Structures are given as structure tokens and as C-alpha cells.
Amino acid sequence: MLTRDIEAFMRFAREVGADFGPATARAAFLVTPEGFARAEQSAQDNRYMQAQQHFDAEAALRQHRQLHAALATELPVFCFPGRAETPDAVFPNNVFATAPGRLIVGRMRHEVRQREAQRSDIRGFFHNLLGYREIDLSTQPHPCELTGALVIDRARGLGYCGLSERCDQAGAQRMHEAFGLRATLMFDLAAGEYHSNVLLAVLAGRAALICAAGFADPAVPVAIAGLYAPHALMLSDGEQAAFAGNAIALREDSLWMSAHAAHALTAASRQQLAAAGLCVREVRLDAIEAGGGSLRCCVAEVF
């Protein structure tokens, strides 16, 4: 099922079990922020990106090493080197994603990011070493920026796809098919928003972080919250601005977000996460957040 019909999607979603696959990844990979700088093409539709004077390449590299070490305490994490000609490559989850036995390569909107999809080392690692089948969406014309645009409940096989200049409806269909999802709900993002994963996180298949103001139709976040109740957190504008929605669970009992995001969480939000059995873990990433993304954007999951 691929639909904009909220009620039809929710009727289906309420009936499916958490038996589609593992709720969290078995490994993850990162790409180092070599040549980290403001990408002017990406800045055209990413309101979270800061001015060039706020970019500190050395600090970004240092914080990225700390991120790698921190995540590796929970699961295997490997890292590919970044390249100066791809300054946004520190956010690989938009370009590369996996499903069991499959590597999916996305179609990026901007040419500066389309270069990332051409990397033979990343493709070769999955195809030649792991034996993954490659599904290459990068050569077709419809933007589909993978797990930036598409938030996935891996336990249930459900997708939540925000449509914007970074993902159109045809791109959403291609991703739905590539991931082999049971059902995907499509919805428009609010004006000025570019990716769903700064507005929504599904955590270990049983909780959700939701930034309602980022959805064009207010009925969408309400419906999603109903599906994950009582462990659905409606984040405040302040929590959203600090990237609290850009979080990820890499195992059943914890979630990761940037230190800036974690410090913005209200006491009520922390209590709700604790009630869901999720411990908040944090890494300082302010240098990387200058690029318009945060911790979840840095992590490409391996299923």
C-alpha cells in the first residue's frame, strides 16, 4: 500500500504485527567530514544550514571521530573517508540505505550530492564483499533522498514519506518498492522543511518523536502519534530547532541524538522516553550541525 489516505493507512497499520524484520540495524556506517564546508546548492532548500563562518572543518572531524567511538559501543560501526568535492557527504543516509540483502542508492536533488552516489568504494563494499544486490535509483529523474525523506518503522514494514523538492511522489513509489515495505504514507511537508527525518523518528518500533509543526496537514502527526501511543512524543518548537527529532535507536533500550538536542529536551520528554524504556545517549555535534543535519543524518544503517 502506497497512499496519501491517512485513514486507510492507519487501518492497515493498526493490524500489522512487529514481525517484518529487526527493529534496529545490525551495523552502521559513517562518512568523514573531509573538506566540510557550506554547500550552496544544498543551502537553497535547507533552512537549517548555517552561514559559512559557522563551519569549522577541524572541529567537525574531531566531533565525528567522537561520534564513531560512541556509536561503536552499541554495534559495529565502520567509516568511509569523505572527499572535498562532496562537502555534504557526512550525511550518507540520504544517498545510501539498506534492506536485508540489498543496497539502495538514492537520487539526490542537487548535483553536488549526486556525486556521492557515484562512489565505487561504497557500492563495491556492499556488492563485492557483502554480496548485497544493488538497487540503483540514482539514474532515474525523480528525487528520492532515502531515509532523509522516508522514515521507516523496520519492525512493522511501514514508511512515512514527506514530499518536498527532495522527494516527489514518483520517488516515494520507487523507495517504497526498493525497501519492500508493507505500506507507506505520503504527506506534504510544511513550507520550508526539506526532510522528514528532522521532524519524525520511529525508535525501535515502539516509540516516536514527532515535530508536528513540520507537517503541512496537522492530521498526519496526530495520526502517527495515535499509532505509537502511549510512547509518542510531540516535540516543542524549541526541541525541533535543536534537532531533537533527528534521533535514532541502534538497539532496543537507547536512542542517540546530539548533545544540543538532548539538552533541549524537556523534563516531560525525558520522562516519556524513560517510560518507553529508552535511555538518551548524546554526542556533541554542533560543528556538524552547521551543515543542516544532525546525528541521525550521519548514520547509514546496515540491515
Rank of each mutant, 00 (worst) to 15 (best):
A213E: 14
E282A: 15
E193H: 12
L265K: 04
C144H: 07
H260A: 14
Q63V: 10
I224T: 02
S294I: 05
L30A: 04
R119Y: 06
A190K: 08
N94D: 13
L67I: 07
R154H: 15
T98K: 10
A275F: 02
F12I: 02
N246E: 08
V77T: 03
E40I: 13
F80A: 06
M257H: 09
H195I: 07
A51D: 14
C211K: 00
Q50L: 14
A13C: 11
L163G: 06
Q169F: 00
V198I: 13
I104E: 02
V299A: 04
S236V: 04
L130K: 14
V77H: 00
T32E: 11
F78N: 10
D217P: 03
D88P: 02
G291F: 06
R107C: 13
L200C: 06
P92H: 10
A13M: 09
G21N: 05
R102K: 15
M10V: 07
Y132R: 07
L163A: 08
P76Y: 01
R123F: 04
A216R: 14
L199C: 08
A275T: 10
E145Q: 11
I248N: 09
I152C: 00
F303A: 13
F179W: 12
F91A: 07
A201E: 01
G192H: 00
H142L: 02
A274F: 01
M234F: 14
F9Q: 09
Y228N: 04
T86K: 02
N94S: 12
C297G: 08
D153C: 08
G238L: 05
R133M: 04
R154F: 13
V280K: 04
A267C: 05
A300V: 03
L273A: 03
P22I: 06
E145A: 08
A13I: 10
E252D: 15
F12K: 08
E252F: 04
A223H: 06
R270E: 12
D188C: 09
L163K: 04
L250T: 10
V151N: 07
A267P: 01
V202K: 04
L235W: 10
G101N: 11
L285W: 05
H54M: 13
A208K: 03
R281M: 11
Q272I: 10
F243H: 11
A207C: 07
